[in-house]
């Protein structure tokens, strides 16, 4: 929780230490990340241009960049679906989380800490169990569908699970705390006097929100949307549990390529494309939103 509060806080009081101490502190962790994050990504890149050497699971390097074209053409449908689902889920999560964060920041009084704990608490029940619970709640035996059918809101043939609706709401649900916490952190930092000042200058509630609160909370909006969009775009659990075969996302394809078809080069090419696409989107988004300092 404290993490996001300081996301863009300027650190002050830095010591201008000419000794090797900061590097000694950094070395173990950064070496670890170099070996187990950077090097694996390079391995993945190498794998993506290999071709099969005849035996299953054996590959030789032949710099076949056409792997990328093949992989993309074969799964462009799932590729675009991943980004569409992730975008809708992010917007949905923002719409749900913003008032929630606003209420905790400004209206909760002494319940603030309790409510903050409650935002993270669902995390501790395994997210798989919660996703499967949604499947049962929305499913044929569940209460929701019976009520909706009883009130004739949906036809007896319509189902809620195995639809894109279920997958998108599942994604929005699962990453909701990632959206709420950064929003809360940036809203909480707003000096209430700026809101009073706005009122004193004859702005009504809506104008104050649009001209003062919203712009001041933009760092939270940026951090929250990123923390929701990135995992949502790469997720395949929600599509696997709540969706049908026609709701498969890119993650499902990568997973199947690795474990069912055992076609590592294509899987690697797809993973690499996903990562590159997300990094480009994130960079453009951060530039546009004008918040450079994220970490």
């Amino acid at each position: 929780m404290a993490s996001i509060r300081g996301v863009s806080a300027k650190s002050f009081g830095l010591k201008d230490n000419k000794s090797a101490l900061p590097y000694l502190l950094l070395a173990p962790g950064l070496v670890y990340l170099a070996v187990f994050f950077i090097y694996p990504i390079i391995s993945l890149g190498q794998m993506s241009t290999k071709t099969s050497s005849g035996e299953i699971g054996q590959y030789k390097q032949s710099f076949r960049f056409a792997n990328y074209v093949d992989a993309f053409l074969e799964s462009k449908e799932q590729f675009s679906r991943s980004f569409i689902y992730a975008t809708i889920a992010t917007v949905l999560a923002l719409a749900i989380a913003y008032p929630l964060a606003y209420a905790i920041a400004f209206k909760s009084g002494r319940w603030k800490n309790v409510l903050l704990v409650l935002i993270v608490a669902p995390f501790f029940t395994s997210f798989l169990l919660r996703t499967i619970a949604w499947k049962q709640i929305l499913g044929e035996e569940g209460p929701v569908i019976k009520v909706l059918r009883g009130l004739h809101i949906i036809s007896p043939q319509t189902t809620l699970t195995a639809t894109s609706f279920a997958v998108v709401t599942g994604l929005a649900y699962n990453f909701l705390p990632f959206m709420t916490l950064p929003l809360y952190a940036s809203l909480e930092r707003i000096d209430p006097r700026t809101l009073e000042a706005s009122g004193d200058l004859y702005a009504n509630g809506f104008t104050t929100f649009r001209k003062v609160t919203l712009p001041l909370s933009m760092p939270g909006v940026v951090a929250g949307t990123l923390l929701t969009f990135i995992p949502a775009a790469g997720d395949y659990i929600n599509a696997a549990i709540l969706g049908s075969p026609s709701n498969k996302m890119l993650g499902n394809v990568i997973d199947a390529r690795f474990f069912k078809i055992v076609d590592y080069p294509t899987a690697a090419a797809l993973s690499f494309t996903l990562m590159a696409a997300i990094l480009i989107l994130v960079t453009v988004y951060i530039r546009k939103a004008g918040t450079e300092e994220l970490v």
């Binding site: 950064l30 694996p40 391995s43 923390l227 775009a233 993650g251 996903l274 990562m275």
Partner: peptide, 27 residues
């Protein structure tokens, strides 16, 4: 550079982290 190296793993989808580590281990 350090900040970037810390930020990148958080900006990489889990499936890419998992797949890349598995590729390295298999290699």
């Amino acid at each position: 550079t350090t900040n970037l190296l810390i930020f990148l793993p958080m900006a990489t989808p889990e499936i890419v982290l998992g797949a890349s580590l598995l590729t390295m281990f298999l290699n």
